[in-house]
Amino acid sequence: MTLKLKTSLPAVICMGAILTACGGSASKPLSTAPTPPPPQAAVLPVPSAAPEGDDFHPSNKGWFLAWSDEFLGDELDRSKWEVEKSCWGGGNEERQCYTDRPENIEVINGLLRLKAYPETYTGPQYPQGWPDGSGGQITQQYTSGKVRTRALADWTYGRFSARMKLPKGQGTWPAFWMMPIDNVYGGWAASGEIDIMEAVNLGATCGECSGSEGENRTLGALHYGGVSPQNKFQSSRNTIPGGENSKDDYHVYAVEWGEDQINWFVDDELFWSLDSSEWESGAVSKETHPHAPFDQNFYLMLNLAVGGRLSEDNNAGGFVANNFPAEVLVDWVRVYQCDYDGASSQNCMAEANQ
């Protein structure tokens, strides 16, 4: 599939660390979803509050808390989060409609709960904010939840972290990621994308993974370069720390994003770093814009995708309907800024390049 993107699109479009274009590679067609069970059969138990866990301690490194959501109420804070409504599949042939319903998005017991269900649902093709409107109606066989800070909170540089418990199974694809509030350098991916955490098919067959528990890695990624299909990306996978069954626990996923460097962490353990010599935007020269496209305001997103190319082209391959319903549990989301050097954040960052 070739996805035709407009350079005026808002930054709401694509994620996927191994995709060569926003629409993905054309390596093989995705299998057709089997007929799902009726919605009343899809039941998820109410989650307990997250157990206590270690937090990053920003005062030791000069970071200060600038924005957060601890999800302590009984409903989503609409002053912090916008709910995306769309059924187009994110350019990756995902199988869900994102809805603004408690069936898919819930705040309970101190947790944000994004829930994916087998359910026939018809909704708008494109999300709110799409330049040509929401398009026609699309019917999908799954629903799920996606929240974002678009038009409510965005930042250039800082530390961005979330404590999360992830779903398992072939076909699951949760993500914590960032997109630019404006397409300053053009459409995806010329204006960039920062994937803080993606996890596909946890627990599924994995010949490259350590141990015997199957897929036990998350990944970080950076998308940049030209407008698709001239986009570029880099990504790195990381075994979730904590040994056997660690994928069943809560973990803190974070990036430190500075002017000259971006660092990726799980549980405050640095596993990957890139510096500004390793990225660029095809819209401007490196000499005049050495940090582009990652020199503009980005907003945060959390979602649970159902299937899609990154999931269905990896591990055991294909899509397993019995892995749904599924859910992502988010204990908190926190944004830190640097106390020492203002905008660039470099003086607070981990010593990845020393």
Rank of each mutant, 00 (worst) to 15 (best):
T35G: 01
N314G: 01
W81H: 05
N303W: 11
G171T: 01
N201Y: 03
V43E: 07
K165M: 07
I196H: 12
R148I: 14
Q141A: 14
G53I: 05
T20G: 13
L5R: 07
V43I: 10
D341L: 01
A41P: 03
S59P: 00
N201F: 03
P102Q: 15
G203I: 01
R113A: 08
S86P: 00
G169Y: 00
Y250H: 05
S246P: 05
V12E: 15
R150W: 15
D260F: 07
E351F: 10
P180C: 11
D54V: 04
D195K: 06
K28H: 08
R148M: 15
D268N: 15
P29I: 00
L9A: 09
A305Q: 14
A21T: 15
Y299H: 13
L19Y: 08
G129P: 11
G207W: 04
M1E: 07
I105S: 09
D248K: 05
T143Q: 02
S27C: 06
W130K: 04
C348I: 07
G53N: 10
K6F: 13
H251G: 05
P118Y: 08
W279H: 01
G73S: 12
G207D: 05
F176R: 02
K286Q: 14
T2Q: 10
S79N: 15
M1N: 06
D275A: 08
M349Y: 04
T156V: 09
H223E: 03
Y126N: 12
